Lab assay of single mutants.
Amino acid sequence: MQGVVKVNSALNMRSGPGSNYGVIGTLRNNDKVEIIKEVDGAYEIRFNGKVGYASKSYITIVN
C-alpha cells in the first residue's frame, strides 16, 4: 500500500510506533512512502530503504 506525507513542515520517522522512540529520519510534504502495516495509531513504513514508524494522521493512502 502506498501513502503520501501531508505536513506543513516535517514529520519524524521513528524506530517505534510512538513519540517516545528515537528519530531515524525525516519526512517532508509529498514524500511517497510504502505502508507496511498499522500499529497503535501509526504506520510502519518504508522510505529510502529504511523501515520505521510515522503518525498515520499525516499520511494519506493513495492506492
Rank of each mutant, 00 (worst) to 15 (best):
I45C: 04
A10N: 10
E38G: 04
K50E: 08
G22D: 15
N30W: 07
A10V: 15
V4T: 07
N30G: 14
V33D: 00
G25Q: 11
L27N: 00
I45V: 09
N20S: 12
L27E: 01
M1A: 10
Y43E: 00
Y53R: 01
A10I: 15
S9K: 13
I36R: 04
R14P: 03
M13A: 04
N63L: 11
Q2K: 11
K6E: 06
V23H: 04
A42M: 15
A10L: 14
R28A: 09
M13K: 02
L11W: 01
K50P: 00
I61T: 06
K56D: 02
I61D: 03
G52I: 02
V4Q: 07
K56F: 03
A42E: 14
V51R: 08
E44L: 13
N30I: 02
V4Y: 08
L27C: 03
I35R: 00
G3N: 01
I36F: 07
V4D: 02
T60F: 14
L27Y: 00
G22N: 14
V5Y: 01
V62R: 05
T26R: 10
D40L: 11
V5K: 01
E38Q: 06
Y21D: 14
L27F: 02
A42N: 14
F47H: 09
V7H: 10
M13D: 03
N12L: 15
Y21P: 03
K6G: 05
S9I: 12
G25R: 04
S19V: 12
G16P: 03
G52Y: 03
S9F: 14
K37Q: 11
G49L: 04
V33S: 00
I36A: 02
A10M: 13
D40C: 14
V7D: 03
N12Y: 15
G41A: 07
S9M: 09
E38V: 09
I61G: 03
D31N: 04
V4C: 12
G25N: 06
R14I: 08
K6A: 08
G22Q: 15
R28P: 01
F47A: 07
Q2S: 10
L11M: 09
K32V: 14
N29Y: 09
E38D: 06
K37R: 15
I61E: 04
G41M: 08
N29H: 09
G52F: 03
V62K: 06
G16F: 03
D31M: 05
Y43C: 03
Y43S: 00
S55C: 14
I61R: 06
S57Y: 14
M13L: 13
V5G: 04
I24P: 01
L11D: 02
Y43N: 00
Y58L: 06
K32A: 09
G49A: 05
G52Q: 02
K32E: 09
N48A: 10
D31G: 02
Y58A: 11
R28D: 05
M1F: 11
T60P: 02
A42G: 05
K56Q: 07
A42T: 14
K37H: 08
R46K: 11
V39L: 10
M13H: 02
I61K: 07
I24H: 02
V5I: 07
S15R: 07
V7I: 09
G49M: 05
S9Q: 12
E38R: 03
V23E: 03
V7A: 12
G18S: 11
N12E: 15
V62A: 08
G16A: 06
S55P: 14
S9P: 05
E38L: 06
A42P: 00
A54T: 09
I61P: 09
K37A: 13
I24K: 02
V39G: 03
S15D: 13
I61C: 08
I45M: 03
N12T: 13
N48L: 09
K37M: 09
L11V: 15
T60D: 10
Y58G: 12
V62F: 09
R14T: 15
S9E: 12
V23F: 04
V23M: 04
I61V: 12
V4M: 08
P17A: 06
Y21G: 09
T26K: 12
V39S: 05
Y58I: 04
T26A: 06
G18E: 06
G16N: 06
V39M: 09
G25I: 09
R14F: 15
K56A: 10
N20R: 11
V62M: 11
N30Q: 08
I24Q: 03
Y21L: 04
G41K: 06
N20C: 14
N48P: 01
R28H: 13
S15H: 05
I35E: 00
V39I: 11
I24M: 05
G49F: 04
G22L: 13
K37P: 00
A10Q: 13
Y43W: 07
R46I: 13
L27R: 00
Y58Q: 06
N12A: 15
G22C: 15
G18H: 08
I35K: 00
I35Q: 00
Y21H: 10
E38T: 05
Q2H: 12
V5W: 01
G16W: 03
I61L: 11
N8M: 11
Y43V: 02
V5R: 00
Y21Q: 07
A42L: 15
Y58W: 07
K6V: 11
A42D: 15
E44H: 10
E34V: 10
R28Y: 14
K6W: 05
E34R: 06
Y53S: 01
K6Y: 08
V23A: 05
K32L: 14
P17M: 06
Y58P: 02
N29R: 08
S55Y: 08
G22W: 10
V62C: 13
N48V: 04
S57F: 14
K56S: 10
I59G: 00
K32I: 14
M1S: 09
P17N: 06
T60N: 10
S19K: 14
P17F: 05
Y43H: 00
V62W: 08
K50D: 06
D40I: 06
T60I: 15
K50I: 14
E44C: 14
S19N: 13
K37T: 10
N12Q: 14
K56W: 03
L27P: 01
N63G: 13
F47G: 02
M1Q: 11
Q2C: 15
A42K: 09
S9Y: 13
F47Y: 09
I59K: 00
D31K: 02
S15G: 08
S9L: 10
I59P: 00
S55I: 09
E34A: 08
G41P: 02
G22Y: 13
Q2I: 15
V23S: 07
I61Y: 05
I59H: 00
T60A: 11
R28I: 09
A54H: 02
V7L: 04
V39R: 05
K37Y: 05
S9W: 11
I35L: 03
V7M: 04
K32S: 09
V62D: 09
T26S: 08
G18M: 04
E44G: 03
L27I: 05
E34Y: 12
K50F: 08
G49I: 03
A42C: 15
Y43K: 00
V4I: 13
N29G: 07
R28N: 11
V33L: 04
I36M: 09
K6H: 13
F47C: 05
R28G: 07
S57D: 14
N20V: 08
I45T: 00
V7N: 07
V4F: 07
Y53F: 11
S55W: 12
K56P: 05
R46S: 10
I36S: 03
K50T: 11
E34I: 12
D40E: 12
G49N: 09
P17E: 04
D31H: 03
Y21F: 12
V33N: 00
V5S: 01
D40Q: 10
I24N: 04
I35C: 03
V62N: 07
M1D: 05
L11H: 05
M13G: 02
R14H: 15
V62E: 09
G52P: 01
Q2D: 07
A54I: 09
G52H: 02
M13C: 08
V62G: 06
S57W: 12
G41E: 10
N8P: 11
D31R: 02
V39K: 07
I61F: 06
I36G: 02
G52S: 02
T26Y: 10
V7F: 06
N20D: 12
L27Q: 00
Y21N: 08
G41C: 10
I36E: 02
M1R: 12
T26I: 15
A10R: 13
G16I: 03
M13W: 07
M1G: 06
N30K: 07
I45D: 00
E44W: 08
L11N: 02
R14Y: 15
V7S: 13
I59A: 00
E44R: 07
G18K: 06
R46N: 09
G3T: 02
N20Q: 13
L11R: 06
Y53K: 01
R14E: 05
N8V: 13
V5E: 01
S55T: 10
Q2W: 15
I59D: 01
N20P: 06
V7R: 05
E44K: 13
Y53Q: 01
G25A: 14
G25V: 09
E34C: 13
G41S: 09
R14N: 10
E38S: 07
V33E: 00
A10P: 13
